[in-house]
Simulated assay, not measured.
Amino acid sequence: MKLPENTFKRRLHAEPQYGCWASFGTGFSAEILATTGYDWLLIDGEHVPNTVPMVLAQLQAVAPYPSHPVVRAVNGDKDLIKQLLDIGVQTLMVPMVESAEQARELVRAMRYPPHGVRGVGGGLARATRWDSIPDYLEKAHEELCLIVQVESRKGVENVAEIAAVEGVDAVFIGPADLSIGLGHPGNPGHPEVQESIRCVVDATRAAGKACGILAPVDTDAKRYLEWGCTFVAVAIDISLMRQALKDTLSRYRDSDIGPKPSSLY
């Protein structure tokens, strides 16, 4: 059996890839999303109560479909990363990366010795297809993709050094945390926030790496694509479902349906 190809990684510098947040935490809902044509799905372990077994169920559910699963860990804990890689995560996103040293430690967590500290799961790991991939230990890193999130003032200040780290494949911008960290909570459109986002995109591209962002508002997504982002999350399943339900009800009940979903999440 051959090592599965990471199609998302292969296309990072090609045509734009459009993503959707997969936030319901079940294989059933993730599989539904996987049939809709998005290039990638973000299985969120930071703000959604996803455990490792729940992430596994979603990876298995979307495996037959072209949509590539990107898994966001709750943090950069090397033991958690080991578990996620062993269940078959090929593209990992880690939030709140603020220094090149932190980025280097994440790279080490994703690689086997002597280049890293990842433990060997062997026949216990879905990643090896239970020892059916004979050269997994030698080639695993070729199909693994590390995305680091820059979403703080410190991260922006250090983004050039972060993006330059060998083994970091892409930088992803978190507009919500960045806006609140810069003193403009709930306002990613503030000029200071926009300037910081542009800085991250430019520095990342200058390092030869791909840049992505969450942008569920159409005008934002188009602007970031023009700036050079190559993978953009343009939809969030929970927000879309909630708004569709409220809009449907409003056609039958003459009442205030409340505010639109936040543009941040």
Rank of each mutant, 00 (worst) to 15 (best):
V55C: 00
A57D: 15
A57F: 10
Q58P: 12
Q60T: 14
S67R: 06
H68K: 08
H68N: 14
P69D: 11
V70Q: 11
V71R: 04
D79F: 14
L80F: 02
I81G: 02
I81E: 05
D86V: 08
V89I: 02
Q90G: 15
Q90S: 14
L92E: 01
V94M: 00
P95I: 07
E98K: 08
S99W: 00
A100E: 12
E101P: 02
E101L: 04
Q102L: 04
Q102E: 01
L106V: 02
V107Y: 03
M110D: 00
R118D: 00
G119R: 10
G123W: 13
L124H: 14
L124I: 15
R126L: 12
R129S: 12
W130A: 06
D131A: 13
S132V: 13
P134Q: 02
D135C: 00
Y136L: 03
L137M: 03
L137F: 05
H141Q: 15
L144C: 11
I147M: 14
V150L: 04
V150W: 08
E151F: 00
E151P: 01
S152E: 07
A160S: 03
G167N: 01
D169V: 00
D169K: 06
D169F: 03
A170V: 10
I173Q: 01
A176R: 14
D177A: 03
L178S: 04
S179R: 07
G183P: 04
H184Q: 08
H184I: 06
G186I: 07
N187L: 09
N187W: 12
G189Y: 09
H190R: 03
E192Q: 14
E192I: 12
E192L: 12
V193D: 11
S196L: 07
I197P: 10
V200L: 05
V200I: 05
V201L: 05
V201K: 13
D202E: 15
